[in-house]
Design a protein around this nucleic acid. Structure first.
Length: 279
DNA sequence: ATTGGTCTGTGCATAGCGAC
DNA sequence: GTCGCTATGCACAGACCAAT
């Protein structure tokens, strides 16, 4: 089977200034895989055709056509084709703060975090609602889309989500490393610096971080940089500027990492802006 | 302008082992 | 089970260039 290039994949991102808490990605007939990555948003996927293999929560899971998939915010995961076969899917990314506000209202208490109890959901009614939502977004019927999204998330949140501390199970060391890395994306402290600050060996530091987060500190900082760069691209920054402002001194290297994390080029991601924004 | 290939030096990730 | 030490392979950063 011939390798498929990222640029040849039929896919688009949907965004709109009136619904800033939503980003939708629709991908058709793709055999492109992802490396382990995370999103700050809640990810809700819908497999339209084929099967996808998701590495999530330390296990490999299969998601089949007709199923919805829930991935917690900031949870490390990767989605890859099975035996090189293509799959078509939508991914709905919902802003974490927006989700927390909705969940807080639903549970009647202010929440600082939440987690999803289920990974794959086979519910034909919910799946149909999800596809209707995609249709409404693509056709620009935003009011109806928002109403449908409200209903859909109330069902999903009440059935499949639970309140949780945002720092659940995270040791102080991991928390400290995250803060230090996020303090300065452009010139983050080296592993050696962090290890010295914590009076640990660098390997110990990596082990602790990997155990808690699921990726290494280096992979984590690159993920955050890519997420930040996506924000800048959405705001209309050039690819070169987005790369520089997020700490990538080489635009070529930024491009490669972006493709590995998103299965789309920065250009593809940015161009989708014209489809949806401000029109 | 964008995308992506190659090359080199460096830092990181990982595995294996032993000590506690 | 956790941690420290060592060796080793790999990924990355950065530079440069070519193709589109």
């Amino acid at each position: 089977m011939a390798a498929q290039s990222v640029r040849s994949v039929e896919q688009e991102y949907w965004r709109h200034n009136d619904l800033p808490h939503i980003e939708l990605r629709s991908t058709r007939q793709s055999r492109i895989g992802y490396k382990a990555h995370l999103h700050q948003a809640l990810s809700i996927g819908a497999i339209e055709q084929g099967t996808t293999c998701v590495n999530y929560g330390g296990a490999e899971r299969l998601a089949h056509a007709g199923e919805l998939v829930l991935i917690d915010p900031e949870a490390v995961h990767s989605c890859n084709p099975v035996d090189g076969h293509s799959r078509s899917y939508h991914m709905l990314y919902l802003d974490n703060t927006w989700c927390l506000n909705r969940l807080s209202a639903l549970f009647g208490q202010p929440l600082s975090g939440f987690c999803c109890d289920r990974f794959a959901i086979k519910d034909p009614l919910l799946f149909t609602q999800y596809l209707s939502l995609v249709e409404l977004l693509h056709s620009g019927q935003l009011n109806q889309a928002e109403t449908l999204l409200d209903g859909l998330t109330v069902t999903l949140f009440s059935r499949y989500c639970s309140p949780a501390s945002s720092d659940i199970d995270q040791r102080e060391i991991t928390h400290y490393i995250r803060l230090r890395l996020l303090e300065n994306l452009v010139t983050p402290p080296s592993l050696t610096d962090l290890a010295e600050e914590l009076h640990l060996r660098p390997e110990t530091l990596i082990r602790i971080f990997y155990k808690d987060v699921g990726i290494t500190p280096k992979a984590f900082i690159n993920n955050v940089r890519i997420e930040r760069a996506k924000l800048l691209l959405r705001q209309g920054e050039s690819i070169v500027d987005a790369a520089q402002q997020t700490g990538f001194s080489d635009q070529s290297h930024f491009h490669k990492l972006f493709v590995l994390n998103n299965a789309a080029t920065p250009r593809q991601y940015q161009l989708s802006r014209s489809i949806s924004d401000n029109n």
